[in-house]
């Protein structure tokens, strides 16, 4: 019997291929397929939620707010009443759905912010109210939040993220942990892009309502100057545009001016002073 070791040629157990090409094809596939799935889930969830009956939205909001004790403003409700009166005056210029009214609330916090949530509930932080120079700027914020309510954005955001989370949970349950970043990253971009579109639309609707109320758009863009000043004061910088949930403040000012020129609304005009109840808030340290 003869024993010999014959050399085996290379490349039988190890296939010749480019790992880089495989990497780009596969990660491209993941982004396209799961990105497509995520966009579909977000848009579908948002569209379904936008068309849910107003009564459901009100019931949802009631369930969330039930039992929550909101703080009284320093003017014993007079500031809140003044805000509510402004909202009622602006309502003529905003196309609110049947049965969905705007209810204004006051929040005791230094944040320079306001937000709208389900069921037409709009919240104002003390920090924002104290920095309002005149009624026109405040009306712009109010109209912006009311536009969100009219466009059913709070419901759309809820429905969209809910369906998106559901899809992500199913996908990520089957994906290795190291790929989570690859799937989560584009979704963060997607969500902020979705949010920026809603903000732009709300800005346009808000300027229209302000122009309808005062006859001009003067003082509306001031609100973004306030945000810029506040950012400069606290030393925080705006995130890069593609990561932010809102368009950049400078961009928003430019968009308002362009819209005003296009529609022929004057950007100069007499500014209305704040109602006394709100002006007093501003005077407080």
């Amino acid at each position: 019997m003869k024993f010999r070791n014959i050399k085996v040629p290379e490349g039988i157990n190890v296939s010749r291929h480019s790992p880089l090409a495989e990497f780009f094809i596969l990660s491209g596939g993941v982004v396209v397929i799961f990105g497509g799935l995520a966009i579909a889930a977000l848009l579908l969830g948002a569209a379904l939620a936008r068309h849910m009956p107003v009564s459901w939205e009100n019931a949802l909001a009631a369930a969330v707010l039930d039992g929550a004790t909101l703080p009284m403003d320093p003017g014993d409700g007079k500031a809140t009443a003044a805000l509510q009166a402004l909202a009622d005056r602006l309502a003529a210029g905003i196309d609110l759905p049947e049965g969905l009214g705007v209810t204004v609330h006051y929040l005791e916090d230094d944040q320079v912010n306001a937000f709208a949530t389900l069921g037409g509930h709009v919240f104002f932080f003390r920090g924002l109210l104290q920095r309002m120079p005149d009624e026109n700027a405040l009306a712009m914020v109010m109209a912006h939040e009311m536009a969100h309510v009219a466009n059913r954005d709070p419901a759309a955001a809820l429905g969209g993220t809910l369906l998106l989370q559901l899809v992500l949970a199913v996908v990520l349950n089957n994906a290795p942990e190291s790929l989570e970043g690859l799937i989560y990253g584009p979704n963060a971009l997607l969500l902020s892009d979705f949010s920026r579109d809603a903000e732009r639309l709300a800005d346009r609707d808000a300027l229209a309502a302000v122009a309808a109320l005062y006859g001009h758009g003067a003082g509306a863009a001031t609100i973004f100057e306030v945000f810029l000043e506040e950012a400069a004061r606290t030393g925080t910088s705006e995130p890069p545009a593609f990561l932010s949930t809102h368009p950049l403040n400078k961009e928003r000012i430019g968009a308002l001016n362009a819209l005003a020129r296009q529609r022929g609304w004057a950007l100069e005009g007499a500014l209305t002073p704040l109602p006394p109840a709100l002006a007093r808030l501003r005077a407080k340290p």
Binding site: V14, S15, L26, P176
Partner: peptide, 25 residues
């Protein structure tokens, strides 16, 4: 890390895991 990452991608789609062939070989 690179090959493991590609293998994880491959595990989503299935098929031959090229990048682990040289490891076992």
């Amino acid at each position: 890390y690179f090959k493991r990452f590609v293998a994880h991608l491959r595990m989503l789609f299935g098929g031959r895991v090229h990048t682990y062939e040289s490891l076992v070989d």
